[in-house]
C-alpha cells in the first residue's frame, strides 16, 4: 500500500522541468496585475481622449530604437505612438496598458464574488443534506445549464452596459460552478477520518464544518478560480466585441479589437492586433498558473 505512496510521489516529477513555463506565466500575471494598478497613469497619452492623429501606423521595428532614444532625450514634440492610433485617433499603446484596469478588475471581482458565494453555498449544501439544500442544487443545475456567453450577453444588455452589471452577470454564470465543485469536495471530505476524529474530540458540528471541512474543501474551487479568471477576461472582451460590454471610450481590449475590426479588411491591422496579443498572453498566463496549481493538487 505504501509502496504506492512512493509511486505517486514519483508521478509529480515533470513539474520541475516545466518551471520555466510556470515562470513565464507568473511573469505575465504579475505584469498584468501591475498594469491594472498603474496602467491608466503611465501611458504617454490619456487612454480616454482622442488625439488629432488618426490611423497612424506603428513605427517599424527598425525605427523603434531611434525613436526611443529621441523620445528619452526629449527632442520629440509629442511622444511617439508605439502601437499607432486607431480610426478615431486614440493612442493604441496607452489604451492597451490601461485596459487591465477594466478587464482584470472585472474578472477578479466577478470571480471573487462567485467564489465566496459559491463556496459558502457549496459548504452548506454538502455538509447539510436536506430538502432545502437539494432544492438549491436543482436551482444551481438550472443556472448551470444556461448557455454561458449568451446568458452573459442577455444579462448585461438588458441590465445596462456598465462595469458593475458585467461583474454581476459573470458572477451569475460562474457561481453554480463553484457551488457544485465545493459541494462535491465537502461531501468527500466530511466522511474522512479527521472529521470523525474532530467529532470524537468534542468539536461542535459548526466548528467541524468551518475549521476542518472547509479549509480542506477549498482547493478545487481555488484551482477553478485561477483558470476562470482567464476565461472571465475572454468573456468580458467577447461581450464588448459584440457590443454588449463596456461602453466606449473605456479602455478595454475586446472593445479595441472590435473598433479595429472594420479597418482590418482594409489592411489597418494595428488597432486590433495589439490588444489581441495582450489578451492572448494574459489569458495564457492565467492558464499556465491554473494548470500548475492543478498539477500540484493532483500530485498530493
Amino acid at each position: 500500500m505504501s509502496s504506492q505512496h512512493t509511486l505517486e510521489t514519483a508521478d509529480m516529477l515533470p513539474r520541475r522541468r516545466r518551471d520555466w513555463l510556470f515562470g513565464l506565466g507568473l511573469t505575465i500575471v504579475v505584469i498584468v496585475v501591475a498594469l491594472a494598478v498603474v496602467g491608466p497613469y503611465i501611458g504617454p497619452y490619456d487612454p480616454t481622449l482622442t488625439t488629432p492623429n488618426v490611423s497612424v501606423p506603428p513605427p517599424s521595428l527598425a525605427e523603434v530604437p531611434g525613436l526611443f532614444s529621441a523620445w528619452i532625450s526629449g527632442t520629440l514634440e509629442a511622444p511617439p505612438h508605439w502601437m499607432g492610433t486607431d480610426a478615431s485617433g486614440f493612442d493604441v499603446f496607452s489604451r492597451v496598458i490601461a485596459a487591465p484596469r477594466t478587464d482584470l478588475v472585472i474578472a477578479l471581482v466577478a470571480n471573487g464574488l462567485s467564489l465566496v458565494i459559491g463556496v459558502f453555498l457549496g459548504l452548506i449544501a454538502g455538509y447539510y443534506r436536506n430538502a432545502a439544500t437539494e432544492f438549491m442544487m436543482r436551482v444551481s443545475d438550472v443556472m448551470q445549464s444556461f448557455p454561458v456567453f449568451i446568458s452573459a450577453m442577455v444579462l448585461v444588455a438588458l441590465a445596462g452596459r456598465s462595469t458593475t452589471n458585467i461583474v454581476i452577470a459573470l458572477a451569475f454564470v460562474y457561481t453554480p460552478i463553484y457551488v457544485r465543485l465545493t459541494r462535491a469536495e465537502v461531501m468527500s471530505q466530511k466522511v474522512r477520518g479527521f472529521v470523525e476524529a474532530a467529532r470524537a474530540l468534542g468539536n461542535t458540528e459548526l466548528n467541524i464544518a468551518i475549521r476542518h471541512v472547509l479549509p480542506n474543501s477549498l482547493t478545487p474551487a481555488l484551482i477553478q478560480a485561477s483558470v476562470t479568471i482567464g476565461f472571465a477576461i475572454l468573456l468580458t472582451a467577447g461581450l464588448s466585441f459584440v457590443g454588449a460590454g463596456v461602453r466606449p471610450p473605456t479602455p478595454e481590449w475586446g472593445l479595441m479589437i472590435s473598433t479595429g475590426a472594420n479597418q482590418i479588411i482594409l489592411g489597418e491591422w494595428w488597432p486590433s492586433v495589439f490588444p489581441g496579443i495582450a489578451i492572448s498572453l494574459t489569458v495564457f498566463g492565467f492558464a499556465v498558473l491554473g494548470n500548475a496549481l492543478e498539477r500540484r493538487y493532483d500530485a498530493s
Binding site: R192, G193, F194, E196, A197, A198, A200, L201, G202, N203, T204, H212, P215, N216
Partner: peptide
Amino acid sequence: MRRYRSKLQIVFQDPFDSLNPR
C-alpha cells in the same frame, strides 16, 4: 456528551486519513 469526550477517546484504522492534513 461533548464534555465527556475528553474521557473517552478513539484511534482510527487509517492514520493517513485521521489527521487534518492542513
